[in-house]
């Protein structure tokens, strides 16, 4: 017990007992397996054939039984490792199976059919990736449509979010006008109101505007995010007013000050908001689920959900599409992970 305490509470820069170090790395190792394992398992499974997916217990890697072409047979035959009566092991192809007995044939001598019990043979397998799990849905389902909708929503919403929130943050940080503080307080007080609390009335507004079953209905409502205004305003407050004044003396209009001075200077904060916005929009589920009921407008998340909800879940396709859905976010994370983690640590928002 005291060791556990010691190990938990010892901090950087101190001499540590080896047991503590060991436990630390053990924790981190187990943690890594638990956090990454499920995703790795998903990716491995997504490359398995439909037959391999229903196998129990499941294989770790995607295997496929080898088939061989045998003279005299039209289709390639599945290959097995057969233990013969004399104890020797031989690779043979299966012609047909009747109950517990299988008719096997030696690929080199296709004339003689040997009868073998099914318990005396093992399938010969090789690692094979079932790429058709990925290519089939792209052709047969609306995957590209969903993907395109998700991209359109994410990109458009992020651009709109960045523009209108940076404009508002600029106004709230650099101008003095009647009602400014009221506006700021009202915005901040809605910081904690999630869309799930105002589903019905927002749906009404969307329907009234005619954006029901329209990507605009997904893009616009979340664009004026209080979080974004707050984040950008706090950052812009640190930009000295003298910069604006000297630009004014040089004859720059307020609009020019905004786009040529403020926005470039606020780039770090804009980048943080952009990353958040991309994450929010790409992963958004409940609101698109309500606004979009026509399947050609589905985003990836809604489309994926409707696939997995079908009566006969085609797991081999669902898994592959899940991998494709998590790929963009994972790539962005791999490239920007330092930036993202420190951004969240300093702003405390997601």
């Amino acid at each position: 017990m005291s060791y556990i305490m010691e190990f938990l509470l010892a901090r950087q820069g101190r001499k540590l007992p080896t047991v503590g170090d060991l436990l630390t790395y053990l924790y981190l190792l187990v943690g890594t397996v638990l956090m990454f394992g499920p995703v790795v398992w998903l990716v491995l499974s997504s490359f398995k054939t439909q037959a391999a997916l229903v196998e129990f217990p499941p294989q770790l890697l995607p295997y496929n039984q080898i088939s061989v072409a045998v003279e005299g047979y039209k289709d390639p035959l599945p290959l097995f490792e057969v233990t013969l009566e004399d104890g020797s092991v031989k690779r043979m192809a299966q012609v047909r199976r009747v109950g517990i007995e299988a008719q096997m044939v030696d690929p080199d001598a296709p004339e003689d059919i040997v009868k073998v019990r099914t318990t005396d043979r093992q399938p010969v397998r090789e690692i094979a990736f079932a790429w058709e799990n990925y290519t089939d849905p792209l052709e047969r389902f609306n995957f590209w449509t969903y993907f395109r909708n998700s991209v359109v929503v994410t990109v458009a919403a992020t651009v709109v979010t960045l523009i209108i929130n940076s404009m508002a943050a600029f106004a709230l940080s650099k101008y003095v006008f009647a009602g400014r503080d009221v506006i700021f307080v009202v915005i901040i007080s809605t910081l904690m109101i999630p869309i799930s609390v105002i589903l019905v009335p927002v749906f009404l507004v969307i329907t009234q505007v005619g954006w029901n079953n329209n990507l605009l209905g997904v893009i616009i409502p979340g664009a004026a995010t209080p979080t974004g205004v707050f984040l950008l305003r706090q950052y812009m407050l640190t930009i000295p007013d003298e910069l604006l004044d000297s630009a004014r003396i040089d004859g720059a209009s307020e609009w020019r000050i905004y786009w040529q001075i403020i926005l470039p200077l606020a780039r770090p904060a804009l980048a943080v908001l952009a990353i958040f916005s991309v994450m929010w929009r790409w992963n958004d589920f409940l609101w698109p689920l309500i606004v979009l009921s026509r399947s050609e407008l589905f985003t990836l998340q809604v489309g994926l959900n409707s696939f997995q909800g079908e009566l006969n879940v085609q797991w081999h396709y669902v898994l592959a599409m899940t991998v494709l859905t998590l790929l963009p976010v994972s790539l962005v994370f791999a490239m920007l992970q330092q930036f993202i983690t420190s951004g969240i640590a300093t702003t405390g928002m997601k």
């Binding site: 929130n165 508002a168 106004a171 009335p201 927002v202 616009i220 979340g222």
Partner: peptide, 25 residues
């Protein structure tokens, strides 16, 4: 008072899609 101009687009969307629905709820 250009502040009003800059805050307007945000306020429109905020008002229509967040504030008004909150009260309407």
């Amino acid at each position: 008072r250009m502040g009003y101009f800059f805050v307007l687009p945000n306020m429109l969307i905020f008002g229509v899609f967040i504030l008004f629905p909150m009260l309407l709820n």
